[in-house]
Simulated assay, not measured.
Amino acid sequence: MGVDATVNQRIVAVVVAWNRRDLLLQNLDGLAAQTHRPDAVVVIDNASTDDTAELASRHPVVTEVVTLPTNTGGAGGFAAGIARAVVAHQAQAVWIMDDDTVPTPTALEELQRARVRYPGRVTVAASRADWRDGREHPMNLPRERLGTTATEREAARLVGAFPIRSASFVSILLDAEAIADHGLPQADYFLWNDDFEYTTRLLRSGVGLYVPASRVYHLTKVFGSSDADPGPRFTNEVRNKLWMYGRSGSLGPLEWPLYVGATGLRWARMLARSDHRSALVGYGREGVKEAMRAPRPTSVVLADTPVAHDVERVERGAGRV
């Protein structure tokens, strides 16, 4: 792929929404205000019980609303949306985000500018995510790629970026060729670490760029990192990390012990800071128990949904079914 091969790419934005219609409205208004407008906008309504689907269908920036019959979590929602974007909307790049993400007007323009100017194919380009007060949100800080060469770092610097190994699903631009090669997020993760597993899978051999000039707001209720006590969601954290480290293959043999060790240290800090330590330990045990089985294929999880055909096509093409 040449330097200018991404200039005229068809870009489809995917927003996963669930019961946050007021935040979704801010998100869609932000998409409508882009200086580089996406060619289509797909909203995945994760079986919301408010008027999310109706609001999205009335918004002029939205091309399609897909309502899933049950809440499949962020993992299932993004798998559904990416598949829909690539198959039904013929995306060559897919810009994904949650409904509590509000892009600034130049967010997409800056991501695409970095991809166009970089001397090679960029698999993932990630925005800077700020909290509502302008501080960079620690929940969305990308992991730097270790072991990059001086040439690689300089190439990234010249386009206003630096090389990364993973990123959150809060405003990243994905190359459709990489999606075709590696498939979709693991829908059975439901939530937590689905973005970590997926982006490290894409970036094991691909180029990832963090582009600070591309700014979005991530309007979570509180400002905090993944070290905070997640309560019952610690079950998902433990299960999904064990699935990832034991079954994914997204990390190389030299990376694996580093990431496993970092996870162990983070869990230890979380437990030490928690006021509900015994409950957290119980959630962790449940996660270990659930990790004993393998995650179901994404095509199975999303089989009875409106995107089943799209998911099957992408996963089959990537050799994941």
Rank of each mutant, 00 (worst) to 15 (best):
residue 278 S to H: 06
residue 313 R to D: 11
residue 44 I to Q: 04
residue 239 R to I: 14
residue 58 R to M: 12
residue 48 S to C: 11
residue 232 P to H: 12
residue 117 R to W: 12
residue 101 T to W: 00
residue 274 S to T: 12
residue 277 R to W: 12
residue 181 D to F: 10
residue 193 N to D: 13
residue 169 F to G: 08
residue 188 D to F: 02
residue 277 R to C: 14
residue 263 T to E: 11
residue 30 G to C: 04
residue 234 F to G: 00
residue 279 A to D: 15
residue 170 V to N: 00
residue 17 A to G: 06
residue 17 A to Y: 08
residue 253 P to K: 01
residue 169 F to L: 02
residue 197 E to T: 11
residue 221 K to A: 15
residue 72 T to A: 08
residue 60 P to K: 04
residue 44 I to W: 10
residue 93 A to V: 01
residue 71 N to V: 07
residue 197 E to M: 06
residue 284 G to T: 08
residue 166 S to V: 07
residue 273 R to T: 12
residue 228 A to G: 03
residue 113 R to F: 15
residue 61 V to C: 12
residue 26 Q to S: 13
residue 11 I to F: 04
residue 109 E to C: 03
residue 219 L to M: 09
residue 219 L to V: 04
residue 149 T to N: 09
residue 117 R to S: 14
residue 25 L to H: 13
residue 111 L to K: 06
residue 113 R to N: 13
residue 173 L to F: 06
residue 34 Q to I: 11
residue 301 V to H: 07
residue 170 V to W: 00
residue 133 D to A: 12
residue 244 M to N: 10
residue 244 M to Q: 11
residue 187 A to H: 06
residue 103 P to H: 08
residue 278 S to I: 13
residue 198 Y to F: 15
residue 100 D to W: 08
residue 54 E to I: 12
residue 131 W to Y: 14
residue 223 F to K: 04
residue 317 G to T: 05
residue 240 N to R: 03
residue 316 R to V: 13
residue 43 V to I: 08
residue 253 P to W: 07
residue 196 F to V: 02
residue 43 V to P: 00
residue 158 L to R: 10
residue 9 Q to Y: 10
residue 35 T to H: 14
residue 97 M to V: 03
residue 44 I to Y: 07
residue 214 S to K: 01
residue 297 P to G: 05
residue 11 I to M: 07
residue 13 A to G: 03
residue 20 R to C: 10
residue 72 T to D: 01
residue 116 V to D: 09
residue 297 P to M: 08
residue 269 R to S: 12
residue 189 Y to S: 06
residue 19 N to S: 14
residue 197 E to I: 03
residue 22 D to P: 00
residue 311 V to T: 08
residue 187 A to G: 08
residue 1 M to Y: 07
residue 99 D to E: 13
residue 107 A to E: 07
residue 51 D to V: 15
residue 202 L to S: 03
residue 233 R to K: 14
residue 237 E to D: 09
residue 243 W to H: 04
residue 88 A to H: 09
residue 263 T to V: 12
residue 127 S to A: 15
residue 288 V to W: 05
residue 320 R to N: 14
residue 33 A to Q: 10
residue 190 F to K: 02
residue 238 V to T: 15
residue 127 S to I: 03
residue 286 E to V: 09
residue 171 S to Y: 03
residue 90 Q to R: 13
residue 99 D to S: 14
residue 292 M to I: 14
residue 69 P to M: 11
residue 289 K to E: 15
residue 84 R to V: 14
residue 211 V to I: 11
residue 24 L to V: 09
residue 300 V to L: 12
residue 234 F to W: 01
residue 39 D to I: 02
residue 204 R to Y: 09
residue 262 A to Y: 04
residue 62 V to N: 07
residue 134 G to H: 06
residue 193 N to R: 13
residue 155 A to W: 11
residue 123 T to I: 11
residue 280 L to S: 06
residue 111 L to Q: 06
residue 60 P to N: 11
residue 121 R to T: 15
residue 93 A to I: 05
residue 300 V to M: 07
residue 168 S to W: 01
residue 266 R to G: 14
residue 321 V to W: 05
residue 216 V to S: 00
residue 203 L to M: 07
residue 312 E to H: 13
residue 253 P to R: 01
residue 291 A to F: 10
residue 109 E to K: 08
residue 190 F to A: 02
residue 21 R to E: 15
residue 289 K to S: 15
residue 153 R to E: 15
residue 173 L to N: 05
residue 315 E to Q: 12
residue 96 I to C: 00
residue 311 V to A: 07
residue 66 V to T: 10
residue 45 D to P: 05
residue 125 A to M: 02
residue 18 W to N: 09
residue 161 A to P: 01
residue 73 G to R: 10
residue 240 N to A: 08
residue 111 L to N: 05
residue 260 V to K: 01
